[in-house]
Design a protein around this nucleic acid. Structure first.
Lengths: 110, 110
DNA sequence: AATAACTATCGTAATATTGCAATATAAAAA
DNA sequence: TTTTTATATTGCAATATTACGATAGTTATT
């Protein structure tokens, strides 16, 4: 064994886990924060912003893209990366549910 | 190599990544959802709610606890687990920032 | 004290992730 | 066309995660 038993959980639970997992690395958090900071699609200089080698950054970008958190389109010589709002909407929904639950919760807690 | 270069990123970026990573597994999403559903500290029957062996569940609970997403206290024969709001507040803050950014964003995107 | 019920830890195997050098690919510039 | 620039892919080593059987620890009950 060792592989995740994903088939034992709901599609929704897996979707959320995939999104959260994609954010579960400081380099990928840094990429998202950078994309938000520059407030635009960014073409080219993401590699220079991170303390990692180019193949590693490329891999992290790929994971964020697969998870649906960023989009990337060819834009001349370089590739234009930007936030994919759809992915963030899903996570936002999850946290809104949690917040709602927490607010109307009784204090029957340790 | 293979280890995460956490020291190359800010404390905040690492904190967020740790929280997100903790949510990056469907079993742990399921645990959080269950704790929210029963709307109480839950003592004992978490293992029965999950399609995983007891040691595995125990491990997932430990990870959620280490990340600061749940709390666990001894309560008689069993342990009382419940949501730790502090952890969720941190993540909420991050997503509020993102939402704010996305809202006031120009459409200078691909 | 002995038993039962619940949870944690250890040990181990299978698999996944992280990181980078080397290399490949693709488009623009010279 | 050759060179330059930007990104992706491959291959591999180091490390981390996932899962569970076996076992240990802890508390309540008998």
């Amino acid at each position: 064994m060792g592989a995740s038993k994903t088939d034992q959980f709901t599609v929704q639970q897996n979707e959320l886990a995939i999104l959260a997992k994609a954010l579960g690395h400081p380099a990928r958090i840094a990429i998202i924060e950078y994309l938000l900071k520059v407030d635009a699609c960014i073409c080219g200089d993401i590699v220079n912003e991170l303390p990692l080698a180019q193949p590693t950054v490329s891999q992290h970008l790929k994971e964020l893209k697969n998870a649906g958190l960023i989009k990337g389109n060819f834009e001349g010589a370089s590739i234009c990366y930007c936030i994919d709002e759809a992915g963030f909407e899903k996570i936002k929904g999850f946290f809104q549910d949690i917040t709602k639950h927490l607010e109307k919760r009784k204090n029957n807690c340790c």
